[in-house]
Design a protein around this nucleic acid. Structure first.
Length: 565
RNA sequence: GCGCCUGUGGUGAAAUGGAUAUCACUUUGGUCUUCGGAACCAACAUUCGGGGUUCGAGUCCCUGCGGGCGCACCA
């Protein structure tokens, strides 16, 4: 709808003023028209006339076109266009039945690597991971619809100080370990490891001999991956717990029903590769030595200095990140790489990428970093996994399950629970803080996943009530839409444009908002207009189109549509 | 201290520089003898303060105040 109008406007501007522009066209508030443009303001300077005058001239030309029922000028020079019913109807036609063509030029046939969730081995997943997983899953699906070959990857720490802390604590206090060996519930084992991580962290912060032991253990664990020396009590515990964590990740991602990652990159597998890059970069002057460590001087890019190799000769997270980046490039030859992490990593990641660009400038301009805000409790305090006061991802699911169970008692409860959680996270713009109150923030009413799921279920059931009287064909020539028919058709016609915008800005919330408004528009239509037994073919057709768009949108966001609720 | 981000109804959020700032929750009051009521309708704000740029500013610039995050061997 937008693009058709845009084309006509462009042609009209060319004809009247001989100027090439891409007119801005948008859907205005309903009172103004079906589509509107402020192209007259765009042109004012170039043409040297006042916008109002330009708009009047364009209106006269546009008024002649068949699809336009009315073209008027308002305010400083807005062009408001009301389409005739036939044009409204046919611009929503593309969405009927199947085979939506929603490819976007920026992504069509491009290789995209999407890295998200990035869990740490030896720690339970918390709400931040839950959020990133849901967001990443939705973006991946959106980009696939847009035509991209998407590879979902995740990168997490299976080596490093946090690991040493957990393993140290288990070795120190093996009580519970035997028990965990017996209990193969992934959630229980993950909990066991996390508790030791918290204890190990506390001991480390006390300093003294505990800290020294943990540092020593850290080196030992790195060596397991280079020497493959896996025959000790220490390595037995390490590899067992590492395996438990891996199983736990698979268990959890399956639990929330998101697409599988094509590839897990544990840090241990990218360390050596990163170290090689750092050594090479040191020779080329990208890195330099400082206090026996190897650092990158970010100041030359307006950033700060970061350590890539410790004075102990160990790689840091920075180096392992270089490793995974180049590994992904080699494995999937990405045209574009999108990374999702917490916003606390923003400045850090800039430095790593600056170093990478210095090493290999091909990467410049191919990478995007999306961040979610800090996940906070509703009282404003920040969660810290180090202190153990996290809201675990599983706690969120449990809390919402309770709410949903009270309200529905249906057999598709799980879909509704996950729908509530997913939509709640997706409906807000990417990047803002996530203030999280387990008991209150996940809604099942109003602008929520369950509202949309219910809207879908209801519409499907209505569609099943079709009788012989309702089987007529829509006849464009005699088509007559009333206020509510028209409003719904108009809203349906916007899907393609909204989807394109959501992809362009990597903003699932745009899509969420549209689907919610669509459902509201339908509910108004349904409240006022009879469908079943009406014998009005276009109402049935609108119902079908509505169901298809809703289904497509929700599915793309990773939200399942239940059969009943 | 330096850098980056942020401030929108009671609460949580939306708004490529465009028209009378949008939505949900809460609260208050309505609709309907259901095509599935998890519905529909109505009421509730001078976008933190002060300057500036612009035909036009929640949005851009400057400044003040408040909040967050990051700044070398953790991830």
């Amino acid at each position: 709808m937008i693009t058709e109008v845009q084309d006509r406007l462009k042609a009209a501007v060319k004809a009247v003023f001989g100027v090439d522009v891409t007119p801005t066209v948008e859907v205005p508030d309903e009172q103004f028209g079906d589509v509107a443009s402020n192209v007259a303001m765009q042109l004012a300077k170039e043409v040297g006339k006042n916008p109002r005058e330009i708009a009047e001239q364009l209106a006269d030309t546009l008024q002649e076109l068949d699809d336009f029922a009315e073209v008027s000028v308002a305010g400083p020079g807005f062009l408001n266009i009301r389409l005739n019913d036939e044009a409204i109807w046919s611009s929503s036609q593309d969405y009927s039945v199947q085979g939506f063509a929603l490819t976007q030029p920026d992504y069509d046939a491009k290789n995209v690597v999407l890295e998200y969730a990035c869990p740490n081995w030896f720690k339970e997943l918390h709400t931040g991971h839950l959020y990133q997983t849901i967001l990443g899953n939705a973006l991946a699906r959106m980009l696939e619809v847009a035509g991209a070959n998407v590879t979902r990857t995740t990168f997490g720490g299976d080596v490093g100080m946090h690991v040493a802390k957990a393993v140290w604590s288990i070795l120190k206090d093996p009580e519970g370990y035997a028990e965990a060996q017996q209990n193969d519930d992934p959630q229980v084992r993950a909990r066991f490891i996390t508790q030791h991580y918290v204890k190990g962290t506390a001991a480390f912060e006390q300093g003294g001999s505990d800290e020294a032991e943990i540092r020593e253990l850290n080196k030992q664990i790195y060596a397991f991956h280079t020497d493959k020396s896996t025959h000790s009590d220490v390595s037995a515990v390490y590899f067992a717990a590492r395996e438990w964590s891996t199983e736990y990740f698979h268990y959890f991602f399956d639990r929330i029903n998101v697409d599988d990652f094509q590839k897990y990159y544990p840090e241990s597998t990218t360390a050596e590769r990163g170290m090689a890059l750092v050594r090479g970069g040191l020779e080329d002057g990208v890195f330099e030595e400082s206090e026996r460590a190897i650092v990158y001087r970010g100041e030359k890019e307006g950033l700060h200095t970061r350590v890539f190799q410790t004075s102990e000769g160990l790689p840091t997270y920075e180096t392992k990140d270089l490793g995974v980046l180049t590994q992904e490039k080699e494995d999937y030859d990405f045209d574009r790489r999108i990374l999702i992490t917490g916003s606390d990593q923003k400045a850090y990641m800039k430095v790593v990428w600056a170093a990478l660009y210095d090493i290999d400038s091909r990467y410049r301009g191919t990478m995007t970093h999306l961040t979610n805000g800090i996940v906070k409790f509703a009282d404003g305090s920040k969660m810290s996994s180090r202190l153990g006061n996290v809201t675990r991802a599983i706690d969120v699911l449990d809390a919402v399950t309770k709410v949903v169970a009270q309200e529905s008692g249906s057999d598709e409860k799980d879909k509704v629970m996950l729908g509530a959680v997913k939509y709640e996270f997706l409906k807000y713009a990417v990047g803002s803080d996530v203030a999280f109150d387990v008991n209150e923030s996940v809604s099942t009413k109003g602008n929520s996943g369950p509202y949309l799921q219910y809207a879908y279920v209801r519409a499907r059931k209505i569609a099943l009530s079709k009788t012989n009287d309702d089987n007529g064909e829509v006849d464009i020539a005699t088509l007559s839409l009333d206020e509510y028919d028209r409003r719904l058709a108009h809203k349906l016609a916007q899907y393609e444009g909204v989807f394109g915008e959501a992809v362009e800005h990597l903003a699932p919330n745009t899509l969420c908002l549209y689907l919610y408004e669509l459902a509201q528009t339908f509910n108004q239509f349904y409240e006022n207009n009879r469908v079943a037994g009406s014998g009005i073919p276009h109402r049935w057709e609108l119902l079908t189109r509505y169901i298809n768009v809703l289904n497509h949108g929700l599915t793309t966001l990773g939200i399942d549509t239940p059969e009943s609720m």
